[in-house]
Design a binder for these strands. Structure first.
Length: 660
DNA sequence: ACGGTGCATGGAA
DNA sequence: GTTCCATGCACCG
């Protein structure tokens, strides 16, 4: 099964309306989509291919599960594809995940949940049966009596019509080719009626197609788009197999947004099968995982809090987590314990990594390892020792290794040409790697988070997502690492981490993390008990003290602030190195630690990445920071392990690694 | 009279 | 209050 499903945001042609400013992050891998022709001349026929129905997550191909696909995000970038991939496991079982792209949480152009395509296993199977197509489910609609009546007019949801069908300016509209699941081509008239200062979009001439699919009122037609052909596919689903949650917003996984008008070429053909193309199988599968996740949330609400990051915020994390990886490094005094999982060495650190300033490693003319770092204030590049651990905000004044260049007024050692040479050298070395990275940047970030999330819930017996089968990079890794949890040297060429390494999916690794999580929970419980005891003491002392009110307040503040009950750890909260990320936080502990809320984490990541990777031109070097962000490597000292990450947000620090 | 087309209406979201 | 859309219905050939 080679069919790829992509989220609608990938294929949606209605992205143009969005401003560039809405682009979530430069790291997002985007590709341009072809456009629909701007004119809607009646002479030009556009076709939609009716896509086969999608499959649900169960193995029962006849059963329709709650597979729910978000419609494409209307807020996705104009004319660009955002690569948000969902995974498919090796068995081909479909999973669906929220592929919502960043943005339109503000309601504009959102499709109603009842129009979100629900994909069944059977449908997926049908769609995927034909080769290498990329399938984007667009929307679906339950046939009304009038839709299925003899008039032969299918009223199209306005937003769907405007989002996924070519724009029309005249009521006469356009002839539209749509294919059904059998590959038969149908020609409909896509048009609109003026209505209450608005429009009513209809597909005319659908009766033969509806009859051919043996559909009636109450049944569902779905529209999908197949790539790269750009065909629209219409599929049908009998009412008896319609997921029960149709129209139930509570089961929705998010919104899709259509793209812009400039991509109409995508719809050169539309297939009618009740499903529209645009989602890779991966995405469909991953959307399913979100559905599962939501279902799970209702049961494990506390544990799931952290995992229940709003899809919009999730996108933010997707966009920044990958960058955040590159910022993580362990403290110099950290000595990792090394264990081997299926041939891959994993370095596990007792203490959490911190977020440091990205640097460019180099070997100077004396053969010594050094690194170049850019001053936060003056943008001049300074040479520091290879083992220097730099804070995320680093300025010349922190250049204790070269006092003569510890002032911003001092000239830069590197000429622009030299700097470009370094960068280009780095580029050459990792060129191929980067190409791959660019193509899967978002995927990687997303999947890295997924890895974390899934590992975090290993204790619940939840299997790793199928998407992990295809991962190439993981959140716990440094930039060039291909493993889930490992640290590799800054040059990224450590042979112990092969590009094809898939140990992250190994049972032994899963076992390892299960063990870690268990230990973590035990520690947490012990810590909780200890805290309770301490609090009891404090309360008693406070009660007896003459400064009762103030102390109580402080105690309350400490508690409410979610900061540590451990004085030492509280001390850590005022570390100058803010922006430490605990990727091992325990969702069920959220109530004790407001610091770890998703919004705060998002802010943290944003802050960290803005400080280091935001694309703006350096005043001194003239080199885009965006480029630098891609070039720069972590300093190579240690790194992050899944079980030993830290989150420090708003001055609060929480550390819940496996050994503490 | 009948069927098709375009618009209006009103309930639902 | 606004928008959407399912349906009714008038008009026309």
């Amino acid at each position: 099964m080679n069919t790829i499903f992509v989220s609608e945001s990938d294929a949606c042609p209605f992205l143009a309306e969005l401003s560039k400013e809405e682009q979530p992050n430069p790291s997002v891998n985007v590709s341009h989509l072809p456009s629909f022709p701007k004119n809607d001349s009646p002479t030009s026929e556009l076709s939609l291919i009716a896509a086969p129905p999608f499959r649900n997550e169960t193995n029962d191909s006849d059963q329709v599960s709650a597979t729910l696909l978000q419609p494409p995000s209307l807020s996705t970038l104009a004319g660009e594809q955002v690569k948000i991939h969902n995974g498919i496991d090796s068995s081909g079982e479909a999973r669906v995940r929220n592929g919502k792209s960043r943005g339109d949480g503000r309601g504009r152009n959102q499709l109603l949940p009842r129009y979100w395509p629900r994909i069944t296993d059977k449908e997926l199977q049908q769609i995927s049966s034909d080769s290498n197509s990329i399938i984007t489910p667009l929307f679906e609609k339950m046939l009304s009596a009038s839709d299925a009546g003899r008039v032969g007019r299918l009223v199209l949801p306005k937003k769907c019509a405007e989002a996924y069908f070519p724009p029309i300016s005249q009521p006469e509209g356009l002839p539209l080719k749509v294919h059904d699941l059998k590959g038969k081509e149908w020609l409909f008239q896509f048009r609109f009626w003026p209505n209450n200062n608005s429009r009513m979009y209809v597909l005319e001439g659908i009766t033969p197609c509806i009859q051919s699919m043996q559909l009636q009122a109450g049944d569902v037609v779905t529209f999908s788009r197949l790539e790269p052909e750009g065909k629209l596919v219409m599929g049908g689903r009998k009412a008896s197999t319609v997921p029960s949650d149709q129209g139930n917003e509570a089961t929705a996984t998010g919104d899709r947004t259509p793209g812009d008008d400039s991509d109409k070429n995508k719809f050169g053909e539309v297939a009618i099968n009740g499903h529209i193309k645009g989602c890779t199988k991966k995405e469909i599968l991953e959307n399913k995982s979100v559905v599962r996740s939501k279902r799970k949330n209702s049961v494990f609400s506390l544990r799931s809090k952290h995992l229940r990051i709003d899809s919009e915020e999730m996108m933010e994390l997707k966009l920044t987590c990958n960058q955040a990886q590159g910022l993580m490094r362990s403290l110099p005094e950290n000595i990792p314990s090394v264990f081997v999982v299926e041939g891959c060495e994993i370095e596990e650190f007792e203490d959490a990594p911190i977020i440091g300033r990205p640097t460019i490693p180099e070997i100077d003319r004396f053969g010594e390892k050094i690194q170049w770092v850019e001053c936060e204030d003056c943008f001049k590049w300074r040479k520091v020792p290879a083992n220097a651990l730099l804070p995320s905000r680093w300025t010349c004044s922190g250049n204790v290794w070269g006092l003569e260049r510890s002032l911003c007024s001092t000239a830069q050692q590197l000429t622009t040409e030299q700097l470009e040479d370094i960068l280009s050298t780095t580029t050459e070395v990792s060129k191929e790697k980067k190409i791959t990275e660019q193509n899967s940047d978002l995927v990687v970030a997303q999947e890295g988070l997924d890895a974390l999330a899934n590992l975090a819930i290993q204790g619940d017996g939840v299997d790793l997502p199928a998407s992990s089968q295809t991962r190439t990079k993981h959140a716990g890794c440094k930039l060039d690492c291909t493993c889930t949890v490992c640290i590799q040297p800054s040059d990224g060429n450590d042979p112990k981490h092969k590009q094809t390494c898939d140990f992250a999916d190994s049972e032994s690794l899963k076992h390892h993390f299960r063990t870690l999580m268990e230990r973590c929970e035990k520690k947490q419980l012990a810590k909780e008990a200890e805290s309770a005891c301490q609090k009891l003491h404090v309360d008693t002392d406070t009660y007896l003290s003459s400064d009762t009110g103030k102390n109580c307040l402080n105690q309350e503040e400490a508690s409410q602030g979610g900061c540590l009950d451990d004085p030492n750890e509280r001390k850590s909260s005022v570390s100058p190195l803010k922006g430490q990320i605990d990727l091992n936080i325990q969702p069920e502990r959220e109530d004790l630690s407001p610091c770890s809320d998703s919004g705060a984490m998002k802010r943290l990541l944003e802050d960290a990445t803005q400080n280091n990777f935001m694309p703006h031109r350096s005043s001194s070097s003239g080199i885009s920071r965006d480029l630098l962000g891609k070039q720069m490597q972590p300093d190579g000292i240690g790194g992050a392990s899944l079980s030993n990450c830290i989150i420090v947000v708003d001055g609060c620090y929480q550390k819940t690694n496996a050994d503490h």
